[in-house]
Amino acid sequence: MFTFIVRRLLLAIPTLLLISLVIFLLVDFAPGSPMSEIPLTVPPDVRQKIIESLGANEPVWWRYLLWLRQFFWVEPLHLWDHLFGTAFAEGQQRIVSWQSRSPVFDVIAQRVPQTLTVVGTAYLFGVLIALPIGIWSAYRQYSWFDQLGTFISMVGYSVPTFFTGVLLIVIFAVNLHWFPSTYDTTLKVTDWASFWQQVRQMALPVTVLALFNAAEISRYTRSAMLENLGQDYVRTARAKGMSERTVLLKHVLRNSLIPVVTVIALGLPTVFGGAIITEQVFKVNGIGAALIGAIHANDLPMVQTLTFIFAVLIVLFNLIADILYGVLDPRIRYD
């Protein structure tokens, strides 16, 4: 197992390098320049100075190498300094956003908590709703519960989140005034009243995303459960006199979890990516919103770094899914 993980991590390095190059070039070739963000009233020589200070005038291969060094060396060093009070990264240039002129990772650090609270909660809820629904739908296949579940997940999965989001806003925020229509990032939870306010402003975006995630995961759970319910070992468990509860929640579920856990793990990176639209709809000031803002402003370092972080997460969670698979299924051997 250990050698498997090490080998996969080593293999991930060239993969990620290639991905980073592709991302860097693609983003770089996109039309637009950082100059468009500098007001026209700025005299040309100052303008030139700004561009030079950003390093935007360098050739693309040079900027790529610089960015690589910053991403893999300077930023980790900086994090180390930050955590342990050392000064290894002193004087080293960090990746700087063209738009805000502040380090990209500082912006990300500010935005991640919002995304995690809203989107992370939604994913967690989605999984917690999906598992029981999937289990029961399979156990009572074709019952009204299953039919309803099938219908709702079909709707939940096929209707885009920007539609359900806007729909919920119109119904519950605009008409019923139950929840605020936008998310206030500046809200600090200090007492019960502000906590309640936080819960209320999270309700709509979390619902939208949780439904979307639950739709997919409950379908996976259902089909995995159905496949296993028909297996011979289920009959054996019943012949041993095990209760239906044990048959379903021990024997069948444990086998069904193998593919389901994989799907859940693979879906985790989309927690960040997939939230982009929902964050826009509800004005959540998270990572997704940061990416959209950076794209509009031609903030290449920001876009490149965020996109690459998504790629890293995807590769990482692929590895985690593989490891979980091996942990859950004793038949899999890594060697």
Partner: peptide, 15 residues
Amino acid sequence: GFVFQDPMTSLNPVF
């Protein structure tokens, strides 16, 4: 007690 035909599939693979 019951013993079934196919021993390859009659035991639960994950326990």
